[in-house]
C-alpha cells in the first residue's frame, strides 16, 4: 500500500513518539495506533516521503495524495478530541499545498530552488544593488535579444488592440502575430524540454548524495543557475503567449 511507503520512511530527525500511545511514529500517523500526529515542520518533498528530486512519478503522487486526503480529512476525525481534529485540519491543508506545488513541473522546480536558497523574487533587486555599488552596468538577468523580441511583439499587440477597438482588423498583422504565437509556443516547449534535461542533472547529484558520494557546491550551483535562467526566460514567453491569445481571441 502506498501509505506505508510514505509512513515507513520518515526523515530520521522527524521521528518521534506518538503523543497517544508512546510508540515510535512516522510523519503523519502513528504506526501502532494510527492516530493523527501533530504536523511536523518539514518541506513538501519530505511531507510525501520523497527525496528532493525533480523527476516525480505524478501518478504515484496523486495516489498518495488521495490516500492521505481520506485519512487526514477533518470530518473523519470529527469525533476525535479537538486537538486531533485541529491537527488533521493543519495536516490536510499542508497536504493540499504540498500536492499542488509538487504536481506542477514549474511550481515544483521553483519550490526546490527556493529550498536551495535561490530568491527568485529578489534576483533583480540584488543585481541592481550590486550594480549601484560597483558603478558597473547591471547584468540583465534576461538576454537582451529576448527583451527586444518581447518589446516588439507587445508593440504589435497594442496596435492590434487599438485596431480592434476601432472595429477594423488588419489581416496581415493578425497573420503575423499568429505566426509569432506558434513560434512562441514552440519556444515554450523547447524551454520545458531543456528544463527537464537539468532535472536529470539535478537528480543525478541527489542520487550521488544519497549514495554518500561527495557533491561539490559548485556542481549544485551550476545546475541551479541553469534552471533559474530557464525559468526567467519562461516567464516572458508565458506572458506573451497569454497576451497574444487574448488579443487574437483564441
Amino acid at each position: 500500500m502506498t501509505l506505508t511507503s510514505i509512513t515507513a520512511k520518515p526523515a530520521p530527525e522527524e521521528t518521534q513518539t506518538c503523543w497517544s500511545c508512546g510508540s515510535m511514529r512516522a510523519s503523519h500517523f502513528c504506526e501502532a495506533c494510527g492516530k493523527v500526529q501533530p504536523p511536523a515542520p518539514v518541506d513538501y518533498f519530505t511531507f510525501f516521503g520523497l527525496p528532493r528530486k525533480l523527476n516525480i512519478d505524478v501518478a504515484l503522487l496523486d495516489r498518495d495524495f488521495y490516500e492521505l486526503s481520506r485519512k487526514l480529512h477533518p470530518d473523519l476525525n470529527a469525533r476525535a478530541g479537538s486537538q486531533e481534529q485541529e491537527w488533521s485540519l493543519q495536516q490536510s491543508s499542508r497536504l493540499n499545498d504540498a500536492h499542488r506545488v509538487l504536481k506542477d513541473p514549474i511550481k515544483r522546480t521553483e519550490y526546490l530552488l527556493k529550498l536551495e536558497g535561490v530568491e527568485l523574487e529578489e534576483q533583480s533587486k540584488s543585481a541592481t544593488e550590486q550594480a549601484r555599488v560597483t558603478g558597473q552596468l547591471k547584468k540583465q538577468v534576461v538576454p537582451p535579444d529576448l527583451l527586444e523580441e518581447v518589446f516588439e511583439l507587445n508593440m504589435q499587440l497594442e496596435e492590434l488592440r487599438a485596431q480592434k477597438k476601432m472595429g477594423e482588423d488588419d489581416p496581415a498583422l493578425i497573420e503575423e502575430i499568429g505566426r509569432q504565437k506558434l513560434e512562441l509556443e514552440e519556444k515554450h516547449e523547447a524551454l520545458l524540454e531543456e528544463l527537464k534535461k537539468y532535472w536529470k542533472g539535478w537528480d543525478a547529484l541527489i542520487d550521488r548524495q544519497l549514495a554518500r558520494q561527495a557533491v561539490s557546491q559548485e556542481e549544485r550551483k551550476q545546475v541551479r543557475d541553469k534552471m533559474v535562467d530557464l525559468l526567467n526566460r519562461r516567464n516572458y514567453i508565458r506572458n506573451l503567449v497569454r497576451d497574444v491569445s487574448e488579443v487574437l481571441g483564441d
Binding site: L120, E121, S124, V150
Partner: peptide, 13 residues
Amino acid sequence: GLVGAPECGDVMK
C-alpha cells in the same frame, strides 16, 4: 535602456 523584470515578465523601455 531596455530592461526586464524576470519575476513577472514585465518589459520597460
